[in-house]
């Protein structure tokens, strides 16, 4: 799609230099350039406030004591009580909050890790082998992408209750492993980034198919794998309907469900509001750290889903 449009014959002169250097061409008035530049920056900065101000408010609120939360400006720091607040949060109700965080890490971390391996294997098989029924399998998986996960929550509950397994760790963990979109991404990425010649060469070297996948293909597919992992992690971490419908036992809750139940008790137990706010703040820190530290992977992998 690009080849016909490029103009290699003409010498590309200094690009991006504002007006002055290109006297032979219709000069763009520097004034106009400055205007569009400032307009663009204003849009960017205003959006930045929109996206970050609520998070800043959450941070500021979680550093305040209960009295100052209601009485001081929400965007300005007052006495810095963050660590004291966190200590109280972790101690409240025998440390149930820490338990919830741990549960979330387990549901999302282990779930996304296993889920990624499973999706990657399936996507790789669909990309790199020819077998009867391949397109059928792929189309069924694609159909799975379009099935809303929440529509499955109720029937999953009914099935788990048939075998008496609701209100267990597994009732939330196992369904979270399935990620059809991960298979789709892995297939696209494997077709594009794992050359057939390489697989042929490793076959000649006597490496088994499965070993080749876990050694060579895995390395080549790393950006896609990190992307799949991160987005499945987020999906499980954010999942609300399935735990809401499956779990009764508070000690099995993920942190989102735990904070939800606290927040719905605020009217009966007013002091719990502080814990809701600090708990909300603490709960988003792991995800922000994960995204920041892995950004060089997912930023390159994210676009691959839309490439046909």
């Amino acid at each position: 799609m690009s080849a016909t449009l490029s103009a290699p014959a003409r010498k590309p002169d200094a690009s991006g230099e504002p007006g002055a250097s290109r006297s032979n061409r219709k000069p763009r008035a520097p004034r106009e350039k400055l205007m569009s530049r400032s307009a663009a920056m204003i849009v960017m900065v205003v959006s930045c406030f929109y996206f970050l101000l609520p998070v800043w408010w959450l941070f500021v609120s979680s550093t305040k004591s209960r009295e100052q939360f209601g009485s001081t400006n929400g965007f300005l720091l007052a006495d810095f009580n963050l660590f004291q607040n966190i200590g109280n949060l972790f101690a409240y109700n025998d440390g149930i909050y820490l338990r919830w965080m741990l549960n979330s890490v387990l549901y999302a971390g282990a779930g996304a890790l296993i889920g990624t391996v499973i999706s990657a294997m399936a996507g790789y098989a669909l990309a790199k082998y020819r077998f009867p029924g391949r397109e059928l399998v792929f189309n069924v998986v694609l159909g799975g992408v379009l099935v809303p996960a929440t529509a499955l929550a109720l029937p999953l509950f009914l099935i788990f209750s048939q075998v008496g397994a609701t209100n267990t760790f597994w009732s939330v963990f196992l369904p979270s492993l399935v990620n059809p979109f991960g298979v789709y991404l892995a297939r696209i990425y494997a077709s594009a980034s794992v050359p057939d010649e390489l697989l042929e060469a490793s076959r000649l070297d006597g490496s088994g198919e499965v070993r080749t996948f876990f050694t060579i293909a895995r390395k080549l597919m790393t950006p896609a794998l990190v992307t799949i992992f991160l987005f499945q992690f987020v999906a499980i971490w954010n999942n609300f309907f399935l735990p809401l419908i499956m779990l009764r036992d508070e000690s099995l809750f993920p942190v989102t469900l735990g904070l939800y139940t606290w927040n719905s008790q605020v009217n009966q137990i007013p002091e719990i509001r502080t814990y809701v706010i600090i708990g909300a703040f603490v709960s988003i820190i792991p995800l922000i750290i994960a995204f920041l530290s892995l950004q060089r992977f997912w930023q390159s992998g994210l676009g691959s889903g839309s490439v046909k």
């Binding site: 609520p54 998070v55 959450l58 609300f240 989102t256 922000i288 994960a290 995204f291």
Partner: peptide, 15 residues
């Protein structure tokens, strides 16, 4: 701009 995506829907709604 990407930071809010790290905030789960439940937490965003509480905030």
């Amino acid at each position: 701009y990407f930071v809010p995506y790290a905030v789960p829907g439940v937490i965003a709604a509480i905030m």
